[in-house]
Simulated scan of single mutants.
Amino acid sequence: MSGDAGVVEGPLHGYHHETYVVPLAGWAVEAEPVRWKCREPRPGLLWFDRRCFASEEQLLRALQGRIEGIPDLIQAGSAGLQRFIEGETLGALYGSGDGIPRSLSGQIVSLFGQLARVKPHSLTVKRTCTSVYRAAEGDTDGFLERLILFTEEEVYQRNMPDFRGLFHELGLYEASFGTLREHVSGLTRRPFCLLHADLHRENFVVDGAGRLWTIDWELAMFGDPLYDLATHLYLMRYPSDQEDRMTERWCETVESAAPGSSAGWEADLPKLLAYKKAQSVFTDVIRTALSLAEQAELDEDLLVRAGGRVREVMSAATEPLGVGTPSEEVVTASLRKWCENYDPVGGEHRP
């Protein structure tokens, strides 16, 4: 495609895809070089979030002119390519926990307003999520219930054959989902809109002109607009004062775009954040265990650090899941035991 294998960059680091960046042979030369992303889903990947659209490229094509700062697309033969945004990720410029400049936070707020205007009936993009995982318009309780159901069935239960022992040693049982449902029920109804659902620092790119671009739309869905804010706040780890300002500006912006979008946010935002904390327990336990098992030899320092991260996410979710926080010794010993019984070749856990 590029005409010169030496100019191909990749594979780039990413969880969901194997990605290469290429300039296309014969493509018109602009003032700045234009490169495109060619990528494929990684085989055998564990998905911890539901996918609602059949194609990210189809979604981006439908959003052109409606959402600012998203990649252009072209068709190169049978391959659909996204324009590679030249710049630095927000995370490379401002690490987790750091505040970000108002010029950039303002662009994020503007993005939320644009998303609030994109209603489920206004896009004809093919959706793949089944009716089991779709809630009726405005049914925020039903929307959250389906997110919980996905975590319960597709993350917890589906991975039980390999992770049963580790889950149970950490105190993570089926009953935790009942506790979670009780903790987060009773949401205020809000009009549904398009959600990016994964707005963290590595999914924002700042170009040389200070413009913010939003990438990686594969987890986009229609649903409760407050869920997008909760996910964003949870992943961004803003300083507390900037988190408060972002929430205030979000409320003003989405209300202007779609009245009712921020209704009941004071009571509901903590509930949605509680779900994100609970969800992270199951995803982080699985990801941490698998990352340790990939090591040729289990490094004790790496194991201790990994155990500390698992304990941290469990501590944050003790109330919504109704579980205790195991000691560092218990977490580390449980992870070590799991790794010792894991078959990295077959990808199966020995009994």
Results as ranks from 00 to 15, higher is better:
Y234S: 14
W250E: 05
E297C: 09
V205S: 01
P259V: 10
L302T: 12
D241V: 06
E300N: 10
V205R: 03
T318Q: 15
R211V: 03
P259I: 12
S315D: 14
A317G: 08
L292G: 11
K277A: 15
R287M: 09
W250D: 00
A316E: 14
V313R: 11
A316R: 15
G307Y: 01
G324Q: 05
A289R: 06
L303M: 05
L272H: 01
P320L: 05
W265Y: 14
G208Y: 04
T288L: 13
T288H: 12
K277S: 12
V310Q: 07
W338T: 03
R287Y: 04
W265M: 07
H196I: 04
L235F: 06
A209V: 08
H232Q: 08
R201E: 01
Y234C: 08
P320D: 03
G307F: 01
L233D: 06
K271C: 04
V254G: 03
P259K: 14
F282C: 00
E248K: 10
N203Q: 02
L298F: 07
M236I: 00
G324H: 06
L298W: 06
A333I: 00
E202D: 13
L219K: 08
R201A: 03
Q295S: 14
G307Q: 02
A220G: 05
E319Q: 14
G210R: 08
L219Y: 10
L321Q: 09
L290W: 10
Y234D: 13
L302V: 07
K277W: 04
L195N: 02
V331L: 15
T247G: 05
L292D: 11
G210K: 04
L212V: 15
W265G: 00
M221K: 08
D299C: 11
S256M: 07
L335T: 14
G264K: 03
S261I: 03
E252P: 00
S262R: 09
A289H: 06
V310D: 02
T332R: 15
R245S: 09
G208V: 06
V330N: 13
E300F: 06
A296G: 14
T247Y: 03
Y234R: 13
W217N: 02
